[in-house]
């Protein structure tokens, strides 16, 4: 009987994320991972049923990590301005500190695995964000909008800034860095747009 080596397992999971980011989901296989991690393919299949099982497990872990990070110091009772500012701050910090995880999620986003994951991940995040929006509307701090419209205005500008940051440039300038000033300037415009 073999015992499960948690450190080794975590290292292999990290390696899997790196390989998926580098080669894409299609170019990634359990065999390649086993080779890179210097373990036998049989060992990989002890812990995961197949490639899909591993990808689902990795995706769920990264999503939960991302959502936990996003809820740091957050409460659905915060005023809308304060709450959205904290969400931007937390999400930007996660993005900057975990670029590999973010790229990994991007690879998953258009795969069948993504649907499965979004159905299985904990709903506490969705519930907390839903309550936050609901409270803000009740207090008259936020205009009532369909979810997709709200989300596009409230968060897409941040994600676009992060994209420019990753590219290191924008359409207009050859160097771009996401600073607190740029983020705050954008946030103020967003807050203004969402006022009733």
């Amino acid at each position: 009987m073999r015992t499960r080596d948690e450190n080794k397992e975590q290292a292999i999971r990290q390696q899997a994320i790196e390989m998926i980011v580098k080669y894409g989901l299609e170019g990634f296989s359990m065999q390649k991972l086993a080779k890179a991690a210097n373990v036998s393919p049989a060992t990989m299949y002890i812990y995961y049923q197949d490639k899909e099982d591993l990808v689902l497990s990795l995706g769920t872990e990264v999503f939960n990590k991302m959502q936990l990070y996003s809820l740091k110091n957050f409460s659905s009772d915060l005023s809308f301005d304060e709450g959205l500012k904290l969400q931007w701050k937390n999400r930007a910090a996660f993005f900057l500190e975990n670029p590999l995880d973010v790229q990994f999620i991007e690879h998953l986003r258009y795969s069948p695995a993504f649907r499965t994951i979004s159905h299985t991940i904990k709903n506490s995040f969705k519930a907390e964000m839903g309550k936050f929006v609901h409270n803000a509307v009740l207090r008259g701090e936020l205009v009532q909008l369909p979810f997709e419209v709200y989300w596009s205005v409230a968060f897409s500008p941040l994600y676009q800034l992060m994209k420019f940051h990753t590219q290191g440039e924008s359409y207009a300038s050859s160097s771009f860095e996401l600073t607190d000033e740029v983020m705050d300037q954008t946030l103020q415009v967003v807050l203004k747009a969402l006022k009733p």
Binding site: S29, M30, Q31, P41, Y45, Q49, D50, K51
Partner: peptide
């Protein structure tokens, strides 16, 4: 049980 048919070794687990 399952078969990983996407694996070159066609793993039966």
């Amino acid at each position: 049980w399952n078969v990983a048919i996407d694996d070159c070794d066609k793993i039966l687990r």
